[in-house]
Design a protein around this nucleic acid. Structure first.
Lengths: 246, 246
DNA sequence: GGTGGGTTCTGGTATATACCAGCCGAAGTT
DNA sequence: AACTTCGGCTGGTATATACCAGAACCCACC
């Protein structure tokens, strides 16, 4: 049965058994795993070792950890097609997915050097900035902060921001998103982000940045999302650039 | 100085100081951080607490961990533009980047249900499968396993696979990659993968899958890469689908 | 019918200790 | 010059213990 290696570490063996429980469907999506203390007692290991087993499952994305509440089975991942520049919100609603948007903060700021470059404006340019938390069925998915050029969208913050801003900007200002430049990278969630999403600090996450441009190619919005790593799946379509193929 | 919260955990405080060291440039890319024992002694904490501080930096992607060798400062991330379907190898070479490809395994297999679906062939279809490790300046970047339809590329495995296969298939078989379907998700590296890359198990990683299609839209290659999370950065370009915009 | 306190869950932080296992270089051997 | 061995580095595994802090639930009290 376990002829793989002479000394498969205990925490791995326990992780294997928990993994098997989940694979067998004994534990459905979002259902609670046994507690660290419970596992320690059941398998005759110390609590710290039990924790290592659970952490192994977390790093696989099989399990997630809510700060001081327990560990739960990760649900199926949510797919976001980044090549098709309809916002996640608009896309999700079109597919009939349950999606709640909570407005966390709103403020008026000014572009720093980095934002100025990304949005092709001068540093100091007034911006609307807002942070929103996206949930599905009550579970946090990602946290997003967007910055839009205030001059182009006066009184934007008077609208209800608990909806797709892509659609909002289209309807009320006639600006539609035509292209986007996207960057994806992995990083742990920061303490404040974790607190807002109810997760333990350093929860694995994926950051997605996008610069959104209008039909004339002018950027008007910069967004940065931090997704729960175990939930995110991004798909994209690639097409050979004819110039390179020539 | 530390008026942020009543009890900022010690491991966080130590992580802050190490982070500051790196930010100040005292430690350059790939240079070794102090050992767990060294940190414990220097800051008057236990070794386990020192480790937690280091793990916090790892999850941020600021530091990486080589199994039983030590922890090192992460270098600048490598960018891979997934929208432009030139392979990473071809692209890297074009940009003059140092890139070594090590062939790990080669075998002849048959498509299982999943691969059959992805490659639009019947289950059991013969495939060439090979695994390669990509390095730059001696440092592992990602591990890739590709499966190509054997019937279309006879004797492929007789060629030197330590080069861009996109280019190889183009030159010797007249098949060029035209489009690709890509999926990106986060997951910890598995034990075997970690061993090949010299990393500790559960090292944070990003998996990238791609189905590559020819000019006729027929898939001929399926690849799965596992990148070191702290090194990877994927960029993509989005364009609104005119059908959705209508 | 809510509100305030419990108690009891959960994980989070922290220490001290022990030994294991791979890596590496230096020293000694062939 | 190549090879082996060994000792001292590194992190990895594992235990036992203690107390802290937030979440949840229940119940008694108003």
């Amino acid at each position: 049965m376990q002829s793989i290696s002479p000394h498969r570490p205990r925490f791995q063996q326990v992780a294997d058994r928990l993994r098997a429980l989940i694979a067998a469907g004994e534990l459905g999506e979002h259902s609670a795993l046994p507690s660290e203390r419970g596992i320690a007692e059941k398998y005759g290991i110390s609590r710290m070792t039990a924790r290592r087993a659970l952490e192994a499952l977390e790093s696989e994305g099989l399990v997630y950890n809510e700060d001081r509440r327990g560990r739960f089975v990760s649900p199926r991942r949510l797919n976001y097609d980044v090549s098709n520049m309809v916002s996640f919100a608009a896309d999700a609603q079109a597919r009939g997915m349950d999606l709640e948007i909570e407005l966390i903060t709103v403020k008026e700021t000014a572009a720093d050097a980095e934002l100025a470059e990304k949005l092709s404006v001068d540093a100091g340019e007034p911006l609307h900035e807002y942070t929103r938390l996206f949930r599905s069925n009550g579970y946090a998915i990602f946290l997003e902060t967007e910055c839009v050029i205030a001059r182009r969208f006066p009184d934007l913050l008077d609208h209800d921001l608990r909806q797709s801003t892509t659609r909002l900007l289209e309807r009320h200002y006639g600006t539609s998103a035509r292209t986007g430049d996207i960057v994806i990278r992995m990083r742990g969630v920061r303490a404040e982000e974790a607190a807002l999403m109810g997760l333990a600090i350093s929860h694995p996450g994926i950051e997605l940045e996008q610069v959104i441009r209008d039909g004339a190619g002018s950027p008007f919005c910069f967004g940065r999302q931090i997704w729960r790593g175990e939930l995110a799946e991004f798909s994209a379509r690639a097409i050979v650039n004819p110039e390179n193929a020539g």
